[in-house]
Design a protein around this nucleic acid. Structure first.
Length: 105
DNA sequence: CCGTTGACCAGGC
DNA sequence: GGCCTGGCCAACG
């Protein structure tokens, strides 16, 4: 596979696309999964926000390490993200937190 | 090439 | 237990 510098975006997208329905992943896990040395979790979110393609990339399945949804989620804020996750059967703890015990891949 | 930015993370108070 | 600070690294202008 052609590995280039700018492929980080595609690696992240590919990883996010592989998250099963009803499950979630975290920025930190994804950052390490792509394996490009050490990619900052910050940059993962940055790329997703910069290049949102919800038709193929379920970025709503990505939360932070505490299971908290993105406060600045591009499509309706954390509320929109939560709504999509609940629709897929993801359990929530409290208001903004996902049940990582059940939903984390 | 340098400074800024980014949907985070860990540590400290 | 909530808020601040520093750090991390890649992309952009």
């Amino acid at each position: 596979m052609g590995n280039k510098k700018g492929d980080l975006i595609e690696r992240i997208y590919k990883r996010v696309r592989k998250i099963p329905k009803g499950k979630v992943s975290t920025y930190g896990i994804i950052a390490k999964s792509i394996g490009a040395k050490k990619v900052n979790p910050r940059y993962v979110g940055y790329l997703l926000h910069k290049n949102p393609n919800p038709k193929v990339i379920p970025c709503h399945r990505v939360v932070d390490r505490n299971g908290k949804v993105a406060e600045k989620y591009a499509f309706g804020g954390w509320r929109g993200q939560k709504k999509k996750l609940i629709h897929e059967g993801v359990k929530f703890i409290g208001i903004k937190r996902v049940d990582l015990r059940e939903s984390l891949v």
